[in-house]
Amino acid sequence: MVISEFKEEISMSVEVPENLEEVAMRVALLKTRGRETTEKEVINQAVLDALQIFVDQELDGHYDTVKYDGAQLVIFDLMGEEISRLDPEQADFEQDFRTNADKTMLRLEDLAHRVVGSR
């Protein structure tokens, strides 16, 4: 699935799932719209989207961009310079989310606040 296609269908709970129940609802919603996806894809996109939302909130707009680099999340500034990296606590953010979605979201929010909010 192309990320832009995924984002087109986003509406924060069902738009960006915050727990496994909402992930299952998102998978089902996409399936009814003819989009085959997996929980893993939805979780990975939700983690990325959540960090992007937190970064955008700290900056009062979309200036920095969040991307995956392997298992890490990376924040880039407007000029494309790397600002920060975040490693998952486990093998990947999917496992972090499955183990404790609330803790994962709090880590993302804290990173955005510390790294972006301090500029």
Rank of each mutant, 00 (worst) to 15 (best):
R35N: 05
R35L: 15
E36W: 10
E36P: 10
E36T: 14
E36I: 13
T37R: 04
T37E: 03
T38P: 05
T38R: 10
T38D: 13
E39G: 10
E39P: 06
I43R: 07
I43F: 13
N44V: 14
Q45C: 06
A46C: 13
V47W: 03
L48D: 13
L48C: 09
D49Q: 14
D49Y: 14
A50C: 08
L51C: 15
Q52Y: 01
Q52N: 04
I53N: 05
F54Q: 07
F54Y: 10
F54W: 04
V55H: 02
V55S: 05
V55M: 02
V55F: 01
V55T: 04
Q57I: 13
Q57D: 07
E58Y: 03
E58G: 02
L59K: 02
D60C: 13
D60F: 11
G61H: 10
H62I: 12
H62V: 14
H62A: 15
H62Q: 14
Y63F: 09
Y63A: 06
D64V: 15
D64G: 09
D64M: 12
D64H: 12
T65Y: 00
T65G: 07
T65K: 00
T65M: 08
V66I: 11
K67A: 02
Y68I: 04
Y68G: 04
Y68T: 02
Y68F: 15
D69P: 01
D69H: 09
D69A: 12
D69W: 05
G70R: 15
G70M: 11
A71M: 11
A71E: 10
Q72Y: 02
L73F: 08
V74W: 04
I75R: 01
I75G: 02
F76A: 10
F76W: 06
F76E: 11
F76M: 15
D77G: 01
D77N: 05
L78A: 09
L78E: 11
L78R: 12
M79Q: 11
M79W: 12
E81T: 07
E82L: 04
E82H: 08
E82W: 10
I83E: 03
S84P: 08
S84T: 11
L86W: 00
L86Y: 00
L86C: 00
D87G: 03
E89F: 03
Q90M: 13
A91F: 07
D92F: 05
F93R: 08
E94R: 00
Q95F: 06
Q95M: 12
Q95P: 01
Q95A: 15
D96N: 09
D96G: 07
F97L: 07
F97Y: 03
F97A: 03
R98W: 05
R98N: 02
T99A: 14
T99W: 05
T99R: 06
N100Q: 09
N100Y: 05
